[in-house]
Computed example of a mutant assay.
Amino acid sequence: MNPHPLSPTAEQLLARSREIADIELVDEEVVEPLTVLVRALNTEAKLDAEGARAYEAKFLRLLVNRLRMKRDFLAHPEIAEQEIAGPLVIMGVARSGTTKLQKVLAASGDFNFLTFWQNFNWASVSGTPGEPVDARIAEADAFCRWYDERSPETKLGHHFSALEPEEEGPLSEGCFVAPSFIGYAEMPSYAQWLADKPRSIFFAFLRDVLKYLQWQGLAVPGRPWLLKSPNYNGHEAAIREVFPNVRFVVANRSPVETLASMCKLLRCFRTAYGSPEVDNAMIVEGNYRAMEAHLANRAAHPEIPILDLRFQDIVGALPATIERIYAHAGMALTPSSRERILAWNAANAMHKHGEFRYSLGDAGLEEAVIRERMARYFELLERLDAA
Rank of each mutant, 00 (worst) to 15 (best):
S108T: 05
N233Q: 12
M331Y: 06
A219R: 02
F120K: 09
K264P: 01
G127Q: 04
Q82M: 13
N65R: 02
I341H: 10
A332I: 11
N42M: 02
E186W: 07
N112W: 02
A272P: 01
G92Q: 11
K70E: 13
I201C: 13
L265C: 04
Q192G: 03
P335T: 07
T258D: 07
I341C: 12
A375T: 01
R376A: 09
E167Q: 14
H351S: 09
V284T: 05
R223Q: 08
P255S: 04
V89H: 12
D362S: 13
P221T: 08
F203R: 05
P188C: 00
G234D: 10
P305F: 03
L226W: 10
M69K: 02
P244Y: 09
V31Q: 14
N2Q: 11
D141V: 01
N119Q: 14
A138Y: 10
E78P: 00
L210K: 07
T321D: 04
A349F: 02
D27M: 02
L307A: 01
V104W: 12
H301N: 12
I20M: 12
P87K: 12
R383I: 03
I23N: 05
V284L: 12
V177A: 15
E81A: 13
S200T: 15
G51R: 09
L41G: 01
T9G: 05
L88V: 12
R371N: 05
Q102H: 15
A106N: 10
I137G: 09
E81L: 10
T258Q: 13
Y288K: 04
F111V: 06
A363I: 00
L88I: 06
L218A: 09
I283M: 10
A300M: 08
N65T: 00
S229E: 15
Q102T: 11
R199L: 15
A185D: 08
E44T: 00
S17V: 02
E139Y: 13
V315S: 08
G217T: 01
A347M: 11
K228A: 04
A329I: 00
Y288G: 01
G174R: 04
N280E: 15
S96V: 07
E367M: 10
V89Y: 14
F116K: 14
P3D: 12
D148W: 14
G109A: 06
K103A: 04
E50S: 05
Y377E: 11
A185V: 06
A138L: 13
G92P: 10
L14S: 03
V246D: 03
T271V: 02
A80W: 09
A238S: 15
T271E: 15
T98W: 10
L37D: 08
I90A: 04
A368P: 06
L41R: 01
A293T: 09
A281L: 11
G234Q: 09
A368E: 15
L227R: 01
V64W: 02
V284M: 10
R136Y: 05
P276N: 06
D385P: 02
A204P: 12
I23D: 03
V26I: 09
R357I: 06
P87A: 08
I182E: 07
Y273W: 14
Y55Q: 13
T154N: 15
P8N: 05
P152G: 04
E167T: 04
L342F: 07
F143T: 00
A327P: 05
G86D: 15
E44W: 00
F248R: 08
V250L: 14
F378S: 10
E186M: 06
F356G: 04
E164W: 15
